[in-house]
């Protein structure tokens, strides 16, 4: 469980215009039957890619990209961590979009993939830039909460708590949580359903 500081990501971007891309589309359910995440990147958008000859993920112009620009409510639906795992293992290190689904955002944080939120106009501009000039090198700056290319600088929102954790390299929360185990026991003992009326079966 190595954890690292995440400050800046520089590279090309895959544009994924369209809202409400759910996790069933990112990683169809049949790929959830593996007991490891190994190779899950092969499932990334696989049904969609099969039926879409010019899918952005397959477009050679975007080969080697390490970020993705997405629309509203990206990652909705199923809680499957397979979706962010597939993105990460495919090489996507950061996503910038209009909004993200709650559980998906939590999963991205847990595995160290920052999410940036920008206005629909700004995201459309980024998507257009990546579509029209796919060789563009974008910089996502976590500290200053910006994404930039050429002279253009766009502000993004990164949830403050997560931003701090990425910069400090403490986004792998497990060590933090384990450090408080004595307090966990205290809180457990203070809860009526743990101590006061627990049924025998528990």
């Amino acid at each position: 469980m190595s954890t690292k500081r995440i400050e800046k990501i520089v590279g090309k971007a895959i544009p994924m215009p369209r809202d409400d891309i759910d996790t069933d589309r990112i990683t169809p359910a049949r790929f959830l039957k593996s007991i490891t995440f190994e190779g899950i990147e092969k499932a990334l958008f696989c049904d969609e890619r099969e039926n879409t000859p010019d899918h952005p993920v397959d477009n050679p112009a975007h080969k080697g990209a390490n970020m993705m620009f997405v629309g509203k409510n990206f990652g909705s639906g199923s809680s499957r961590e397979h979706a962010p795992q597939a993105l990460k293992r495919f090489g996507v290190e950061v996503l910038v979009g209009v909004s993200f689904a709650e559980i998906f955002a939590g999963n991205c944080f847990a595995i160290g993939v920052p999410l940036g939120v920008a206005s629909a106009d700004d995201v459309n501009e980024l998507i257009k830039q990546a579509q029209e000039e796919p060789e563009t090198r974008f910089t996502v700056d976590i500290r200053n909460a910006t994404v930039s290319y050429g002279e253009r600088v766009i502000s993004i929102d990164i949830q403050e708590t997560r931003q701090k954790a990425f910069l400090a390299g403490t986004w792998d929360m497990l060590a933090n949580l384990r450090g408080n185990l004595p307090q966990v026991e205290e809180v457990a003992q203070s809860l009526p359903y743990v101590t006061n009326f627990e049924s025998e079966a528990q």
């Binding site: 959830l32 490891t36 961590e81 701090k164 929360m173 933090n176 809180v187 809860l191």
Partner: peptide, 29 residues
């Protein structure tokens, strides 16, 4: 409030989970 264990450095809350239900799909890893 009654399930908050600590305020984490990240600013998040550490929350106690009273019941954890598990199944085959999201647990092997």
């Amino acid at each position: 409030d009654s399930h908050t264990v600590a305020k984490l450095d990240s600013g998040q809350d550490q929350i106690f989970i009273g019941l954890h239900l598990i199944h085959e799909v999201t647990t092997p890893q």
